[in-house]
Design a protein around this nucleic acid. Structure first.
Length: 341
DNA sequence: TTCCAGCCAT
DNA sequence: ATGGCGGGAA
């Protein structure tokens, strides 16, 4: 995955892999299954799941309703490949000039290299069998958060060299071994624990494969919304939602592209941003927007001191040259003194 | 020294 | 809602 994703974002056929679309209705159906199971049962190897996760799943289920205003789709749970039908974009008006803004960001991205551009989640694992490749993608995604691309890649290579890049072997591996192999990725202690637990679930419940729905991925320890959507795209070639990380969250808010339901306030979490974005952004852009905004957020629209002077879309940006406190960077220690005009 | 990222736990 | 995690950059 590289700049090729940036160049032709309007055309899915230009993506390096086939992309299938799944209806949200189908998602909501699949979503209910884990909820109906006895909470806390440990037969599946998943640790007694706490209410936080359940609440999250329920929240997402509620969001789906918002995204499915057209009732007729509720009767067609298996609809796929409706990329050209922007049925979910009808209720929410897209922000003004969003296409020009995207094009402007794309130009800036092509003229300046961003750290994210050197990351290739598939690197080194393309030769694996499908099942192992998917597991490797999941592991790589788990390792990648808060970690530089090359560090992640080297850690993944060490796991590969030691034959641990499959659910079966990872399940049997010593946790301390995993920990030493993935060092120094961020939070390696916890990630080693998570990897063992994830492998166990994959073996016991998915025959060594990885979960194939967002919901089931979310049930894995260490897997949140960002990683779940990333894995759906990279491992399963399915686009069920936008992969929203802190950069997408921050930039979307600065541009005024997202808001809390029934309000003009910005969103306060990446999950809110994801839902808000999905309500108007055409699905053709759901994959490409991540790479686009992450790189933009790394190089120009930075968390601290955004380089508005260098930004070619500042005339469209309601936050240009304002020392605003974005949702992503807001904290008790940094409050804007006063919104000075 | 402070801030940061994605998830988890309090 | 907020702090912790492990380390690197601002």
């Amino acid at each position: 995955m590289s700049l090729s994703l940036l160049r032709n974002t309007a055309n899915l056929s230009s993506l390096p892999f086939p992309v299938r679309f799944i209806s949200f209705t189908a998602m909501s159906k699949a979503r209910k299954i884990p909820l109906l199971q006895t909470p806390g049962s440990e037969d599946d190897g998943v640790a007694p799941k706490n209410r936080v996760r359940k609440r999250r799943v329920e929240m997402i289920a509620k969001e789906v309703k918002i995204e499915s205003p057209d009732k007729k789709f509720l009767r067609h749970p298996e609809i796929e490949d409706f990329a050209s039908d922007n049925v979910y974009s009808q209720s929410i008006q897209p922000p003004a000039n969003w296409e020009s803004i995207m094009e402007g960001i794309r130009s800036m991205r092509l003229s300046e290299h961003a750290p994210v551009d050197s990351i290739d989640p598939d690197e080194g694992v393309t030769s694996l069998q499908p099942k192992e490749r998917r597991f490797a993608v999941l592991v790589g995604s788990l390792l990648s958060s808060q970690t530089k691309g090359h560090v992640t890649h080297e850690a993944n290579q060490r796991l590969l060299e030691n034959g641990l890049l499959s659910a079966d072997t990872m399940d049997r591996a010593d946790e301390a071994t995993i920990k030493s192999l993935i060092y120094p990725v961020g939070f390696y202690t916890r990630k080693a624990q998570h990897l063992k637990q994830v492998a166990k679930v994959c073996v016991s419940k998915y025959d060594g494969d990885i979960p194939s729905t967002v919901d089931d991925l979310l049930l894995l320890p260490g897997v949140g919304p960002k990683i779940a959507h990333l894995v759906m795209i990279m491992a399963w070639n399915k686009v069920e939602g936008i992969c929203v990380d802190t950069h997408v969250h921050r930039v979307s808010n600065r541009l005024g592209w997202v808001s809390r339901p029934g309000s003009k306030q910005g969103t306060r979490s990446p999950e809110e941003t994801r839902v808000s974005l999905q309500q108007w952004l055409p699905r053709e852009e759901w994959v490409s927007i991540n790479l686009l905004l992450v790189g933009f957020g790394q190089t120009i629209c930075t968390p601290l001191r955004p380089r508005c002077a260098k930004c070619t879309i500042r005339e469209f940006c309601p936050s240009a040259f304002k020392e605003i406190s974005t949702p992503a960077s807001t904290s008790k220690t940094r409050r804007p003194k006063k919104e000075l005009g």
